[in-house]
Nucleic acid binder design. Sequence first.
RNA 1: GCCCUCGUGGUGAAAUUGGUAGACACAAAGGACUUAAAAUCCUUGCCCUUUUGGGAGUGCCAGUUCGAGUCUGGCCGAGGGCACCA
Length: 846
Amino acid sequence: MERYNFKEVEEKWQKSWDDTNAFSTKLDKNKKKFYCLEMFPYPSGKIHMGHVRNYTIGDVLSRYKSLKGFNVLHPMGWDAFGMPAENAARDNNLDPKEWTNSNIITMKNQLKKLGLSIDWEREISTCSEDYYKHQQTFFLELLKKGLVYRKENYVNWDPIDETVLANEQVIDGRGWRSGAIVERKKLSQWFFKISKFSQDLLDGLETLNAWPNKVKTMQKNWIGKSFGCEIDFKINGDLPVNKIRCFTTRPDTLFGFSFLALSVDHEVSKYFLENEDFIKFKEECSKTGTTEEAIAVGEKIGFKTNLKAVNPLKPEEEVPVYFANFVLMDYGFGAVFGCPAHDQRDFDFAKKYKLNIKTVVAPFGKEESYTVIDEAYPGPGVLINSDFLNGLEAPSKSVDETIKILEKRNLGKRKVNYRLKDWGVSRQRYWGCPIPIMYDENGDSHPIPESFLPVKLPENINLKVKGNPLDNEENWKYISVDGKKYTRETDTLDTFVCSSWYYLRFCSPNESKYGFKNDEIDYWMPVDQYIGGVEHAILHLLYSRFFMRAINYRNENFNITEPFQSLFTQGMVCHETYKDNKNNWLSPDQVEKVGNKYFLKGNKNEIVKVGPSESMSKSKKNVIDPEHIIESYGADSVRLFILSDSPPEKDVQWSEQGMVSSYKFIQKLWALHKIIKSKLLDEKKDTFDENIEKFTNQTISKITSNLEKFNYNVIIANMYETYNYLINYLKNNKNMSNLENNYKKILICFSPVIPHFSSECLYEIGISNYKWPEYDEKLIQDDKIKIVIQINGKKRALLDVEKGIEKSELLEIVRKDKNLEKYLVEKEIKKVIFVENRLMNILLNE
RNA sequence: GCCCUCGUGGUGAAAUUGGUAGACACAAAGGACUUAAAAUCCUUGCCCUUUUGGGAGUGCCAGUUCGAGUCUGGCCGAGGGCACCA
């Protein structure tokens, strides 16, 4: 038997697709469009299994939609700015641009070997001037619209390298390269006013019906709308501070007020800048990281002032005012009203500083005797110990009621607050899009004039400097405009900015004047299906949604608010982890499995420790190189395997055995193909066979609906079922006249998953132009069905009956059935539940 | 710590969306073919019964229902996100 030569076949078809630009797309208003987009990759060096999975999922969909007659846009590009290039370049004395571009070439070749139906004529790279120059235009447009501003913000500062660190570069509070203890430091930075659109971004979520609920919930929580009240607390003390404004969602617990906590950056802090203890305290606070997690987990510490805050509902009561490390200047007004009995964080703080803990909410039914002792009670209940508020249901009625009282007495104001912070886009790095701004001698910022745009990144620069490399480029740093000398902005833009609009660029990749053409985005946008990792659920997706609104804002020609119509978040590719006896990570190809035990390859004496299966990552060495796998088994086998084992939205375990079985399956399909082909050549074809007709229609129906629902793993099962059916069927059947037509349809159904194999087989039976097959609804129905008979809810029989059988008729059959007789004899039937074509449940009087 | 998601055989999973739990595959055991091995094919798969058959069973505990993997509440466990990785 001739074996299937995947190498030859795959190369042949890939070349043919390349030569004919088979997947290049043009705007065609007569055709319905389908824009399929997968999150574009960072060109880190080689593609990894996560890419294989992501792009296979998108490719299956694109090929299917294309066969369905859509004008499919399926582009690919490179998210090419970012830290890894800068680090690799710095460590190996390379140019980030060369490093990036050579990675792009490698990865593009690897993607082509997967047989993806990509329109490579639309390839873009965010680090090319052609791309980032438009981004500078957008930046200046947004600046003009008042959506960009400058403010001070904290960063992770490495005092040895004199550089800003990303959160991931801070390991256990120390800089990853220098080992210095990382400090919080304030820097003046550029911000996008995403908070202006808080409500709009929240409302927009309601329209995204084809997004996973979990992503919508995450974004909703991220935006963090809360209803509450702003309260001005009267302040007594020896400083010229009369009042401090607070936002709270629980004004109803004011009678449990026991301290007021301020951020160390609160304006009141200006009176403490000469206080040595306060300075020390502030330094102590700066050691807590900048992440929310670090603040939440870290110890709560405070600095007591001699100020007192007055309880607005009980003017005779004064409580101390503290500075505290857990209060953020970004949220509310940088001041928190502390009610320890009903907030765990406040409770911990109060315990530590021995402050009053007064219970003001009791769970329902415990109004008489309830007191908070060991932990805060944040749940619902009834207000107690609260004077005129007593008895109100908390928080459902009490919050609203309290706000009314505060408003009436002019002590507070109803307010909606959002957690969403403005987007800081300044990065103190070289390898990013330059921010088109310059500063005059007073330090005031000005847009770079149009005639000086784009601002190009300087080349051949020294990356091994302290601080920001661009800041050290004396030849680049200064610009002279109209005879006046300016200093350039040396920060570059966050790479999330690049990925916030790239999907527009794919619509007009060659437009040179502006980032996109209106008629092209009008046709192609929105993206019909966006596919990527759930790790982008919040930031990238929210930033993109913001970016569309920002361009839309005061722009009559731009009508997009939601860029991604449907979203699919795929799971990760996981593999077991291995360690040797010195606890060093081992890669799977260093490990050998004998029986149930794992050994170091070539050394049966050293047992390898097997760890849990985790997302493939270089640091844990549990990676499988897709290129190597494609070479050994072929692209179709890899595509088949990566889809087969788990639903695409869940994590999948990489398994060599699973991979081999996919490979074998293709070989079996090839053998089947040869049998069918020989039957087709046989001239005696006199019988028309209904069975295969019916089977084919059922298969088309199943695969079509599973494609629509992203049940790609089930499609693979459908493919196995199809093989199992056909191989048995052909054993027992002579030649039939309708074999070719049915086989053709089956091959087309397989083609989105295994395009090379299917193309070759279709070609071999002489078919080159084809569409997605339709199925006949009448043909997929069975006349005979199996119906479940339950007695008192327990399954007792499975009966073969005519489809559509009536309740009374079925009951007669049941009564006569020998196996069921014993249950029914001498019993009275109380009730019969009948679900047509499904089941009958007979309830007996016991 | 906060937010989100997910728990079904030895393993990955399927289940017409409240109606036959375990499709399809991997692994294992037994068998067939073979001098032998590989490859391939067949059978088996929790407990009781020789069989027919019966029982338990979808992380744990309750609840709703004629009926729960699916709905509700509580608990336990795993994973993801937490604003400068992309």
